[in-house]
């Protein structure tokens, strides 16, 4: 397999000791098994995320994304920018599309970048890690390094919002994308394809500011997984992962439920399937332990 190289945009939540640090740990292990070289965009900054609009407005938000583009273009020429975080991907891709569509916006953005001696030529390509896996590898290629099967585990594939809308993965539908289920099946797991909360919203950033409303969403997402017989939820989004896992105990406390459903990243499943240890898969980062996966890792 030829070595593939990408300009990596890990995002704030994936940093050491941040809320999605186990996403980064498992992504690194997964990429090692696939012979993918990720080089961090030098001195990358935050994308503005989904609530940056209120105070940040349009141009400041686009300008900070363009700062990352300029860094990637200069230091990692020709490499696609790859994000693991749904919001990073969305924020960056949205910014790129606005810049591609408007020479006025491009001019103003470069005027802002010039304040730091930077310039964006407009040449970057923004992708999500899932796109890399599916488009640059494909399910058959992804299966080749597999050492262990995830047989016997039932997964609810929770795609969520921002990896799915408005851009999504090419060839997939917005209402019922199938890639996560296909990935689960590729590695021998059982995908619960009728899981009806697959593309529901977890509340996103409003889990902080509107906890009751968001926790209603989260309860539905987890309960539906139970109803379909799931043992674990798997997701491609760090905010989905955090919201859906972290608030289960809070919902139990307030509403007397007994939710205790592990929520994993696809990269953690793949690391275990590729023969990685529980630690390499970041399973020690789960608040709700994924014991069945730990057992497979220990075999």
């Amino acid at each position: 397999m030829a070595k593939k190289e990408y300009a990596f945009y890990p995002g704030c939540s994936s940093q050491l000791k941040a809320s999605a640090s186990n996403y980064l740990v498992s992504t690194n292990a997964m990429c090692k098994a696939l012979d993918v070289k990720l080089t961090e965009i030098p001195d990358w900054n935050c994308c503005g995320a989904s609530v940056g609009y209120c105070e940040g407005g349009e141009l400041p938000r686009i300008a900070i994304n363009a700062r990352n583009f300029a860094q990637a273009e200069t230091h990692l020429p020709g490499q696609d920018i790859v994000a693991t975080c749904a919001a990073c991907w969305l924020g960056a891709r949205e910014s790129k599309e606005r810049l591609d569509a408007s020479s006025q916006l491009m001019k103003e953005t470069n005027e802002a970048l010039a304040a730091a001696g930077l310039h964006y030529k407009g040449e970057v390509n923004i992708r999500h890690m899932v796109e890399v896996l599916i488009e640059d590898f494909g399910y058959d290629e992804l299966k080749k390094p597999m050492k262990k099967s995830l047989e016997g585990i039932k997964f609810a594939g929770y795609v969520g919002c921002q990896t799915n809308r408005p851009f999504g993965i090419d060839g997939e539908s917005f209402e019922n994308p199938l890639y996560l289920d296909k990935m689960v099946e590729t590695f021998g797991g059982e995908a619960l394809t009728s899981y009806d909360q697959k593309v529901a919203c977890c509340g996103g950033a409003l889990a902080f500011s509107e906890p009751e409303k968001s926790q209603k969403q989260i309860r539905d997402i987890v309960e539906s997984a139970y109803d379909h017989g799931a043992e674990m939820i798997v997701t491609p989004c760090p905010l989905c992962q955090a919201n859906v896992e972290v608030y289960q105990s809070e919902i139990n406390k307030k509403q007397g439920t007994k939710l205790n459903m592990p929520v994993l990243y696809y990269s953690q499943l793949m690391t275990i399937a590729y023969g990685g240890s529980a630690k390499e898969a970041g399973l020690n980062g789960q608040l709700i332990r994924a014991e069945k996966l730990e057992r497979i890792a220990g075999k």
Binding site: C12, Q15, L16, K17, A18, S19, A20, S21, N22, D43, W44, N45, G57, L59, P60, I62, A63, I64, R67, E108, T109, E111, A112, L113, A114, A115, A116, G117, L118, N284, G285, Q286, L287
Partner: peptide, 29 residues
């Protein structure tokens, strides 16, 4: 679970070229 760092209260992660970053945000605004 090592997903929260109490030491972030003293600063935490950030960009190296903070001056440049601030200049971009200010100019864009």
């Amino acid at each position: 679970a090592k997903r929260l760092n109490p030491m972030e209260i003293f600063g935490g992660h950030g960009v190296k070229d903070l001056k440049g970053f601030h200049a971009i945000v200010a100019k864009a605004k």
